[in-house]
Design a protein around this nucleic acid. Structure first.
Lengths: 213, 213
DNA sequence: CATTGTGAACGCCTTCACAGCC
DNA sequence: GGCTGTGAAGGCGTTCACAATG
């Protein structure tokens, strides 16, 4: 889905005070092509004006609504190593209606440490911590070692989490309708290595391999 | 490309001492379906035995060759915040023929700190640091703030880097033939939020949204 | 007999091209 | 004149189904 990319590009344009964009300009800012932009946006509704383009702020609010960003999403992070800290401490969450509501680890040395005012708790407290929010409108982030990933996944599913974003290098299985998305650094590096070794396999005329995202 | 996933699954099977796998078993371990596995592997060559399956170790070595993992790849990381540390400190690199050769930042407080025996250097030393290795067989990892990402990207391209893996929330432009791959936490979260709001848009019968990877 | 390799069918996404509109 | 929305065409990856095979 490319809506998040459009959303980010539109945010920048809005911050710059630009009132309207053409599909070509938006395509450029989002790193795709103009035909794709028009086709995508036409699925949302008829929001453009021929000869002028799209109203930046209006389109932005429509896309944010479509992505569900006009409601707050809660996020729980399991595994507070460097990666967990990078995710939790980042200001990206608060800027986009994603709010951290739980940080968990099993290392006694980390328990109690505060990250942006939220304390790291032990995994044994995980299940009782869901009392404060609706798990079906929450996303669980797995940032623990691979060996603990499936267990973390099962416990997230067990409390009725809406979706899981897994950064551990492990293939996880979940029971539908829980959504699962995998992000793996090594897989990305290996994919790049493959395309360097096989330049003829690169599909796009210029931008490089972006089959995902 | 799914080869990295097969590679990981085969590694596990090999470590467990399992001699052969069928396409169905490998598909299960990699999180895809059997028809895809057979089609993918048939593109590499005729490595399977009807009635038996694939020889784990032989197939593994073939895939590692195809991914270029029988040669060493060097990695430079720009931006040594929590994310950069997570990437650099991880043992994932050394296990898979990816070796860190450069860690860079602009924060004086970080310069000189050692991560797994490799010191963090100032970005002003970046260009001269490429003397020790072949940049065209190297991958640059951008883990700095978005505002500095395009500059980091330009300097990586400037020294002739083979590919760039960008974790900063910014759309980067590179001159071909440099390969670029973007990974963005917020985009992943927003994609999951979208699918929670629009369950009917989930394509796969069960596994959830995995268009990328 | 279990399992591979593959042609054929299918469906989805992308791209093109242009009519319609401001 | 510039730009959108969209039908039509094209291309690519997935899935099916089965002949071939050890």
């Amino acid at each position: 889905m490319r809506l998040p990319l459009y959303q980010r590009a539109l945010r920048q344009l809005s911050a710059d005070g630009i009132p309207t964009v053409s599909s070509a300009e938006l395509a450029d800012a989002a790193g795709v092509n103009a035909a794709k932009v028009r086709k995508d946006l036409s699925h949302l509704g008829t929001y453009g004006t021929p000869g002028t383009g799209y109203d930046v702020n209006f389109l932005l609010s429509q896309i944010r609504h479509e992505l569900g960003l006009d409601r707050e999403w809660t996020v729980a992070i399991i595994g507070m190593g460097n990666l967990g800290h990078a995710l939790a401490h980042s200001d990206r969450f608060s800027n986009q209606n994603f709010r951290n509501v739980g940080l968990f680890d099993v290392d006694p040395a980390k328990i109690g440490e505060e990250v942006d005012g939220l304390p790291i708790r032990h995994m044994s407290e995980f299940e009782q911590s869901v009392a404060g929010f609706d798990p079906s409108r929450s996303i669980g982030v797995i940032a623990c070692p691979a060996a603990a990933a499936q267990d973390a996944c099962d416990r997230l599913v067990g409390v009725g989490i809406g979706a899981i974003l897994n950064f551990a290098p492990a293939i996880l299985t979940v029971a539908p309708p829980v959504l699962l998305r995998q992000v793996d650094f090594v897989v990305e590096l290996q994919a790049l290595a493959f395309y360097i070794v096989h330049p003829e396999a690169v599909t796009g005329p210029e931008e490089g391999p972006q089959p995902g995202l």
